[in-house]
Computed example of a mutant assay.
Amino acid sequence: MSIKSKPTLQDVARMAGVSSMTVSRALTKPDIVSEQTRQKIDHAVRELGYVPNLAASQLVTRRSGIVGALITTITNPILATTIETLQQGLARAGFHMLIGETRFSQEEEGKLLRAFLGRQLDGLILAYGYHSPETLELLQAAEIPVIELWDLPEGEVPRQPVGQVVGFSNWAAGASAGRHLVACGYRKPAFFGYDDERENLRFQGFRRAVLDGLGVEPQRYKTSAIPSIEDGVDMIERLARGELDCDAAFFTNDMQAIGALFACQRLGIAVPQTLGICGFGDLPIARVAAPSLTSVRIPAEKVANSTVELLCQRIKGEEPWAANIDVGSELVARESTALRR
């Protein structure tokens, strides 16, 4: 029985009716080949079952064609949107993306980073701005382009980012929620979030807005590191038992806020009359919930697209068109925090 030989790049070129050089360009730098030609080559690749020799390509180009992305949690819908947009943008630029989930663990981030760097990455995306000393040493030694997502350097002693940052001010996002709840007439707004660096900044902004508006210290209640619907349900059940004291709640994730809405409906707590609820992320479910959910919107697609553009410039050795990029945030007022009369 004869053994079928593996298809070659030349086989793909013959089937697509183009030169071998054009096939090579389409596979390594698809953005410089016309869409019509790419479609012919893609069809030939699928028909023949051709698998490019990435190791050989790396020897020639000194690039792996791989970008790593360390994400805090893939269960957060706003991060899922970001990942999808990143993947699409990088694919158009000829890169594959490896994804690792740190679950907010600096130890896990270090383990994943070591594994990723062994792949000879062309660049790295970090969806969290706070790292262990070991991770910082690894990144410095790697000497590859790095872009951090979400958390702009801010505060009394701003952190020193590893590379460029595409994100927003956590302080400003928290302040916008606090100002809105005060303006709606609530007198005991409370903050519901995890106790880490980014959430602390959101709380500081929230606290400042409440202090300026009401002259009182807002309560802060701790939620889980990995946001979930159950978090919001648990907090409302505690409120119903008299364990918490507030008439408005700012949850730092929409999933928690949606859980709170469900729990209020089940327990007969009127929203927004008895309790105002504000979320963070402005997920699609916020718009269709009943009542619809007030939320702080972060432009996730803009974050991802700007990240891809900056990273590709850095990989090519070009001067980036911007340093840190502030995409901003926007409070979207809906029924869950309607003005109290």
Rank of each mutant, 00 (worst) to 15 (best):
E109M: 05
E109I: 03
E109R: 12
G110T: 08
K111E: 13
K111H: 11
K111L: 09
L112F: 09
L113V: 05
L113H: 10
L113Y: 14
R114F: 09
F116S: 00
L117K: 12
G118F: 09
R119L: 06
Q120F: 02
L124K: 12
L124M: 10
I125E: 04
I125D: 01
L126P: 07
L126G: 13
Y128G: 15
G129K: 00
G129N: 10
G129P: 07
P133Q: 06
P133Y: 12
P133M: 09
L136Y: 01
E137M: 09
L138D: 10
A141Q: 15
A142Y: 08
A142T: 11
I144E: 03
I147G: 14
E148S: 14
E148I: 01
L149A: 13
W150Y: 08
P153S: 12
P153I: 01
E156L: 14
E156F: 05
V157Q: 09
V157Y: 03
P158G: 13
P158S: 11
R159G: 06
Q160G: 01
Q160R: 03
P161E: 14
V162L: 04
V165R: 00
V165T: 15
V166P: 03
G167K: 06
G167W: 04
G167P: 12
F168Y: 15
S169K: 11
S169E: 07
N170P: 04
A175D: 09
A175G: 05
A175M: 07
S176V: 05
A177V: 08
G178D: 05
R179G: 06
R179C: 05
H180N: 00
H180V: 02
H180K: 09
A183L: 11
Y186G: 05
R187Y: 01
K188S: 13
F192P: 11
D195P: 01
D196I: 03
D196P: 02
D196H: 06
R198V: 02
R198S: 15
E199S: 14
E199N: 12
L201C: 11
L201P: 02
R202A: 14
F203Q: 11
F203L: 12
Q204V: 01
G205P: 05
R207H: 09
R208S: 13
R208M: 04
A209C: 04
V210Q: 06
D212C: 03
G213M: 06
L214M: 05
L214H: 03
G215K: 01
V216L: 12
V216S: 15
P218H: 02
P218C: 01
Q219S: 09
Q219D: 03
Y221K: 13
K222H: 10
K222W: 00
S224M: 04
S224Y: 00
S224E: 08
A225V: 12
I229S: 07
I229P: 00
D231R: 01
V233H: 00
V233I: 13
R238S: 13
A240T: 02
A240H: 10
A240K: 08
R241N: 12
R241E: 13
R241S: 15
E243L: 07
L244S: 14
D245K: 07
